[in-house]
């Protein structure tokens, strides 16, 4: 249970970090941020990176600010920084409601928002939040910056469209208007464990009818995503049991659930329908 040897680099600027990454990524060099997923993987020797580029001492990566209508979350912002609202308004409260579901308190002191997104575990709450709320990923390499919409970022289990020489420098989540309603639901068998399925829903009301619905599902498929079929079932409806059940059933039918030794596809489908319905009820209450 001891990590294999590696070369350690502790850059203090983003330029230095991405230059090191460009040099070492082809030889399995990796970014080390919070380390709460990477280090256990190294302890099991499932990962044996030859170089670790520790970004914890890089200035400016800890920024957590509002710019151009979005909450900008820098690469070393910890989960614990969302224990209290990170910004005014609905988004700040939403993130605070979600964060208590992420692992446990000590893990949240070290683990980072961007690290979770880059790691891209299907059961990651922040990945699902990013997908549901149409976040933008800011990828930085030695040759410049690239903006990647969340819908084009998550590919499959622990696989993103980030290139090996790119650092996920920042995630930008659009602020939510004050009339946005939201609900979050997650199910697992033990507190802090990986989600078997989870959902985040948001919508607004116009003339008593649902507009701009976002229904994201995570943990159930190989990547988190918005479920267009469920959103279509909800748009233009009057909030209530009929509309919520129709959207929940549409979500369950649309997903392609993962299976494992304890959970078959039908179980995840049923679970997803229940969670989507409950999240919609939470949003309405």
């Amino acid at each position: 249970m001891k990590p294999a040897a590696f070369e350690y680099h502790a850059p203090t600027t983003v330029d230095e970090a991405v230059t090191l990454l460009a040099e070492h990524a082809p030889n399995d060099g990796r970014i080390l941020a919070g380390g709460q997923s990477l280090v256990p993987t190294m302890a099991f020797r499932l990962a044996r990176p030859t170089h670790l580029i520790d970004i914890n001492n890089v200035a400016d990566l800890d920024k957590l600010v509002i710019e151009d209508g979005a909450l900008c979350i820098g690469a070393t912002v910890r989960h614990a920084q969302f224990h209290t609202p990170a910004c005014d308004g609905v988004l700040g409260h939403l993130l605070t409601d979600v964060v208590s579901n992420i692992a446990h308190y000590p893990i949240r002191q070290r683990g980072t928002f961007c690290g979770s997104v880059a790691h891209s575990d299907p059961a990651s709450e922040w990945c699902m939040v990013s997908a549901t709320l149409d976040a933008t990923m800011v990828a930085q390499s030695a040759s410049g910056e690239r903006l990647i919409p969340a819908a084009e970022f998550f590919e499959t289990v622990m696989t993103t469209t980030l290139n090996e020489d790119e650092l996920l420098r920042e995630v930008r989540i659009p602020l939510l208007s004050d009339d946005t309603l939201y609900g979050f639901q997650e199910f697992n068998r033990r507190a802090g464990d990986f989600a078997i399925s989870m959902t985040l829903v948001t919508y607004r009301l116009e003339g008593g009818k649902i507009t701009d619905p976002h229904i994201g599902v995570g943990g159930a498929e190989d990547r988190p995503r918005r479920i267009a079929e469920a959103e279509a079932a909800l748009a233009g409806q009057v909030p209530g049991d009929d509309a919520f059940r129709a959207a929940a059933d549409a979500a369950a039918a649309a997903i392609d659930p993962m299976e494992d030794h304890a959970t078959n596809a039908q179980y995840r489908r049923d679970l997803t329908a229940t969670l989507v319905r409950r999240a919609l009820e939470n949003a309405a209450s």
Binding site: M1, V39, P40, A43, A80, Q109
Partner: peptide, 25 residues
């Protein structure tokens, strides 16, 4: 030694963290 049990929890700058998931350096 992989961050699950918490036996190694110490305070680093007053925050409780798993000391098996941080490198000494």
């Amino acid at each position: 030694e992989h961050g699950i049990c918490g036996a190694c929890t110490v305070l680093v700058d007053d925050a409780p963290v798993r000391s098996c998931l941080m490198f000494g350096v």
